[in-house]
């Protein structure tokens, strides 16, 4: 079985976000970029399937600038077999990302696509679902457990109100939630080995897909600040404030 894992290069989760003063966006200059945390979980899950003898081959794919090679090398160092960079310097919307991924799926013919449920920059939570729809494949979003057997995927999902288990015919698209696994760190020898693994580059413009954004970003602003609070010295003072100042209890 072949597994395709899309990965995105994003601002590292531990870096403080700075909104540009002119409202034109978020300042990413010289800041640490990393693989989207949900995508790390997707890579880990694919490797687990390979270690269990279920997956034979893992292909990582990223859409982005030349620096997204680093993200792909991380996936290779974790255990992916080969990588594809669909190169573009433009900001690509989730719909166009899904279309590009569809063309990669058409070419690679994986049995399973595992990807993050959302990217922590744009927080859109839609690419996996869009890809599944464009392919006419079934989907299981927000996976916290994946079992593959007999050409089917049994996926437990984190949903409002608890957990839900679905059975999907393969091929299928699965999106990962936080509790699916704990991603491994790439060991130094594996980082070295990853440098020799195949990384193919494709020019996004060559795919014949419209990459022009269809949502116009009017402004990007800092959220309003909360007014400063106070420290209280005791439980009694807290209760008094809640009753008589905030009048909330």
């Amino acid at each position: 079985m072949k597994v395709l894992v899309p990965v995105k290069r994003v601002l590292d989760a531990n870096v403080a976000v700075r909104v540009k003063a002119d409202g034109s966006g978020v300042d990413l200059a010289n800041l640490k970029m990393s693989m989207n945390p949900f995508d790390e979980i997707a890579v880990e899950e694919a490797i687990k399937l390979k270690e269990a003898g279920i997956a034979a081959e893992i292909v990582a794919v990223s859409i982005g600038p030349a620096q997204a090679q680093d993200t792909l090398r991380t996936a290779l160092a974790m255990g992916a077999d080969s990588a594809i960079l669909v190169k573009t310097d433009e900001t690509i919307e989730p719909l166009a990302v899904a279309k590009i991924l569809k063309s990669i799926v058409d070419q690679q013919a994986p049995d399973l696509v595992i990807m993050g449920k959302q990217a922590i920059d744009d927080d859109s939570n839609q690419t996996a679902q869009m890809l599944a729809a464009l392919l006419g494949w079934p989907q299981a979003t927000f996976a916290s457990k994946v079992v593959i057997a007999d050409g089917k995927a049994s996926v437990t999902r984190e949903v409002d109100g608890g957990l839900e288990t679905l059975e999907l015919d393969l091929p299928a698209v699965i999106s990962t939630d936080l509790r699916l696994n704990v991603p491994r760190y790439a060991s130094l020898p594996n980082v070295m080995k990853a440098k020799k693994k195949p990384l193919e580059e494709i020019d996004a413009a060559s795919l014949g897909i419209s990459l022009a954004p269809t949502l116009r970003v009017i402004s990007t602003a800092r959220p309003p600040e909360r007014k400063p609070g106070v420290m209280v010295g005791s439980v009694a003072e807290l209760v008094d404030k809640l009753r008589n100042e905030a009048r909330i209890i």
């Binding site: 989730p94 939570n125 839609q126 679902q129 729809a133 979003t141 409002d160 949502l215």
Partner: peptide
């Protein structure tokens, strides 16, 4: 919700439009 988030991006893709999320 988890249902809305699962259903609507599929709708958007099938209509060939972006979804405005959340």
């Amino acid at each position: 919700t988890t249902t809305g988030k699962s259903v609507l991006p599929r709708v958007a893709a099938l209509l060939d439009v972006m979804q405005v999320s959340d």
